[in-house]
Design a protein around this nucleic acid. Sequence first.
DNA 1: CGTATATCAGAAAGACTGAGATAC
DNA 2: CGTATCTCAGTCATTCTGATATAC
Lengths: 142, 142
Amino acid sequence: MSRRPKTFDLTFLLEQAQRRVSRNFDLALRELGASPEQWRVLDRLSDEEGRPIGELAAELCMNPPTMTKLIDRMVAANLVMRIADESDSRRVLVFITDIGIELWAKLTRRADSFNEQLAGTLSAKQIQHLGEMLGYLADRPS
Amino acid sequence: MSRRPKTFDLTFLLEQAQRRVSRNFDLALRELGASPEQWRVLDRLSDEEGRPIGELAAELCMNPPTMTKLIDRMVAANLVMRIADESDSRRVLVFITDIGIELWAKLTRRADSFNEQLAGTLSAKQIQHLGEMLGYLADRPS
DNA sequence: CGTATATCAGAAAGACTGAGATAC
DNA sequence: CGTATCTCAGTCATTCTGATATAC
């Protein structure tokens, strides 16, 4: 009847919060035609400099093959393009296109307003602490 | 060259923390033969009472068809079983099996130790605040 | 030669939609 | 009849592993 007295289940809280938040975030961005992952990539490329696949993968915590597939779809949608790195031909640099820039601007406005709404009634100090602790969890080697 | 001055990107922090934590959590549980989702289901059924699919789906924030498939695999692995609800034949109650109980016990020990290690050097008060804020974010309607 | 980078091939779990079956 | 519960069918994006091609 009663649940076991359990260790504080931080993993579950994190999963649930992310699941519920991202469900709505997905919807907000999907209306504009992109997934959260695509927006993350566009955001990193928005300074119009090229970046290698591996770097993008590491930043977004994906394996290279996963990033390759994501970039495949974004190339097909004309959001980014691949250009071989002249200084190291093993590398392929990914650049944002004009269409990608346009979409990125729209997505960013939507994402910003989502974040503002999400932070909602949390105080600035709470948000700062939350950010610090999430960053701490993300950086744990474990 | 410089990144845009952006709204505090809580969504991104949440995604990244969850991504990096869950990657390791996956590995920890996968060694024992279950996914995090399977453990969540087993944990909810561990009092050996039956629960309808819809309730499990709502608690874990999944659509019913997704939960049906998850339960399918768990039935195939003899971890749970389906029994029609006598009082409402639309419902199918899911019960944990003896094998499920055994696996749940192992998974729980592993998950608990993972959570303890994850909490790491955070103070009890920090963990409490983190839990409260994550719960708050999860409960936002938005 | 060994390492690094990206891609390919394939398998699996997950997520979503829309439609259907059954029971209230 | 309308609603609720679950399942089915099908599609798609994501993830992982292991192998391959190419370049350093």
